[in-house]
Amino acid sequence: MNTPNVSRGPVAGRVVAPNGATAPSEIEVPAVVTEAVFETRELSVLYSGFRAVRGVDLTIRRGEITAFIGPSGCGKSTVLRCFNRMNDLIDGAKVEGDLLYRGVNLYDAAVNPVEVRRRVGMVFQKPNPFPKSIWHNIAYAPKVAGVKKKGDLDEIVERSLRRAALWDEVKDRLNDSAMGLSGGQQQRLCIARAIASDPEVVLMDEPCSALDPIATARIEDLMKELTNDYTIVIVTHNMQQAARVADMTAFFTTEVASESDRRTGLLVEYDRTDMMFTAPSDERTENYITGRFG
């Protein structure tokens, strides 16, 4: 099991002196100084007046992988889709509470969701490449962001595909349709597409649930590599996956309203992944991770 590396942020917990030697130990540096990318306070999402998920208070820090786990219907995907305003596409969806992206409330009336999505990319459950060539799949994001020169686009396409560990497999057929790739390749293409607009955060909504174990392992390796440049939030059904890749884990569950029999999701516990899986503080978390329900 991967032990989360808590010092993996832009501000590492060590100061290096000009001569390359480690600074004297008298200088106290906090062990974890990572900047918050997202902060939510009492976030809840309503669909047509019905509360789908409530009570989400968490802080997602730069350069970390944060996993959302929980049983079906607990609202983890719903919360994820708030982070790039994808819920705007659903009629009747309404968000309450605060969702701050680097201090700015994402649901402020003046916020342009299109600009948000250029900074917060997304990878979906089912690989969904555009039915176009591999090149056009990657170049589309920079194109709509205003990059026009073919040379620049070529460079972005190559860089994105290399970062998504797909370049060597597709470099000779960039003009072929993306639909001809295998499922795992398609999902890596979608990751390349998401990072082509150079976002700060990549949201992944169960990115491996349609893939076989080998393809899944490749995506997981890729995720760990990408944390050098990107903050990743992943929704997963697979607890082992969360344990393998995530620095932080949030556990959601559902509660059933006694009078209406409707389910509402809620955030139960949010902690470092190793804590979550070794010493959960909530009984419901423990029951879930030990397989007693869910």
């Binding site: 990319g121 709509v144 082509a196």
Partner: peptide
């Protein structure tokens, strides 16, 4: 999924309609 893919990379609604 196709619409979401378009919106997800930061296309506007009219761009999603015209190109996808």
């Amino acid at each position: 999924e196709l619409r979401e893919a378009g919106f997800g990379v930061g296309a506007t609604q009219s761009e999603v309609i015209r190109s996808h």
